[in-house]
Design a protein around this nucleic acid. Structure first.
Lengths: 263, 263
DNA sequence: GCTTGAAGTTGACGCGACGTCAACCTCTAC
DNA sequence: GTAGAGGTTGACGTCGCGTCAACTTCAAGC
């Protein structure tokens, strides 16, 4: 009645490779008994039972670290499994959103094959009329602001205009990602995007606050409302709900970045 | 009108880190222009456009290698995206199955908390009555086969019996995984499990074919049918449909492993 | 001229769970 | 003696960068 098995016997028995067993030994997940320091590994019945539990949890998708925790801290496999389940569900939602995005992109490519350049990397130098926003900007920030802004725009030149638009695009993607991920507008991730947004705005000459190196608080809040209210702006942030997320995040950012008494 | 930007400008513009840009340069995905070999990297408008396409595809979940292929081989972004979509869907199904498994395991743990040992690592030395299969084995393979088998079983001893059961468990998991993955019973993966199954069977003294080092062809096929017909056996392979998968895979294996004329 | 700072450069390690050599030892069988 | 089976210990590769570390270069302020 043998009291132990060789590494190959365990491997054949359980269907894992001997390399895997050596790895589990190396990381301490399944220590093997050794006669001499550098002699063959031997496994006893207790090891075999432990390996079975390891494999069960591994099949359920847990990482080796989590498996070690669950097995060693005794009594909370269920807790570990529930936590794991949450992360699996989150991953599934992420996948679902990604699949939807890929489908939309494919559909757009198929609908208008010639639009590839537009979709894949809109040059945006054509088809974008900066002046279409004249009324909004003028009404909200005064004729002077628009005049400065338009002069700024024409003064940028081709490269500068593209630079501005690329920044807007990148921010749009970042906002959409954050909103679709279901983040809290007050979360660190969302606030980091808000900070990028503010920095980007203040880099534009002619915008209120440009001289101060950071956007005017009222301007920031007003922009947020405008994104939500106007579909043309909202489209840049994934529609009205995306724009709402942007507005909320900007509000939180404004409250934090401009303490009491500041304009 | 500047014709190029520094690495930091591109980073701020697009929201990626400079480390990422260096990486893309290093792997050739987005080569930068350099004045001297070890001087600063410079990016022009073409690079900026390429980077936008890279980021779009990256957001859709493609790997850098796939992105490089899609961008360089021109004209088949849609093809690359469709292939990617397939893998995303496969991953989603895998996740769904895994979630279901975790849920079942949690439910089992909650329903009977004391069954933890049974579920997590059934010792199986208790509660498993080898003799309950006497009738089936006897009827199908003759009283002599059962007598030899039973003598073998009792002769195994505690360790040997556990060894046998652990092998059966591991095979069960492998079969269930293969069946749930939607594999073809004739696929390489399924046939590899079938080969393990055959090897495991032939290792048992008293089974038809043990002396030949490989199971009797008829025995193998008969077992497959028995797994499907008898729920108690089928339970080891995830129910009737799992057992059906096992039977089909074993049939294919038998046809291939025992060419014409062989028994 | 000297210091400091900002921005750039090239390595190199780390992550996760092993697969996959490579080089070597040891025991048994012929 | 030699071949083969089965064991050992490294060490590299995977994927997409994050994160130091150590160094250079350039412009501004003292």
């Amino acid at each position: 009645m043998d009291m132990h098995w060789s590494i190959q016997e365990i491997a054949r028995l359980t269907g894992v490779t001997s390399r895997t067993l050596r790895h589990y030994d190396a990381v301490g997940l399944l220590p093997a008994v050794r006669v001499t320091a550098s002699g063959p590994r031997r496994y006893d019945r207790a090891a075999l039972v432990r390996l079975q539990r390891i494999l069960l949890l591994r099949d359920l998708g847990l990482g080796l670290g989590d498996i070690a925790e669950a097995l060693d801290s005794e009594q909370d496999e269920a807790k570990a499994l529930r936590r794991h389940l949450d992360s699996l569900r989150a991953e599934q939602h992420r996948l679902a959103r990604q699949i939807a995005s890929v489908e939309r992109t494919i559909a757009a490519l198929e609908k208008d094959p010639e639009a590839k350049e537009d979709i894949m990397a809109k040059d945006m130098l054509d088809g974008f009329d900066h002046t279409q926003y004249e009324q909004e900007v003028t009404e909200r920030w005064g004729r002077d602001a628009y005049a400065k802004s338009d002069a700024w725009w024409r003064g940028l030149g081709k490269d500068g205009q593209q630079q501005w638009k690329v920044g807007a695009e990148a921010l749009g993607r970042a906002w959409i990602d954050a909103a679709e991920a279901g983040l809290d507008p007050a979360s660190d991730e969302a606030q980091a995007v808000a900070a990028r947004h503010a920095e980007w705005l203040s880099s534009i000459p002619g915008t209120p606050g440009h001289e101060q190196g950071r956007p005017d608080k009222g301007y920031l809040l007003g922009l947020g409302d405008m994104y939500v209210a106007d579909d043309r702006f909202a489209a840049n942030y994934g529609g009205t709900e995306g724009a709402t997320f942007v507005r909320d995040a900007l509000r939180v950012y404004a409250e934090r970045a401009y303490p009491e008494g500041e304009a």
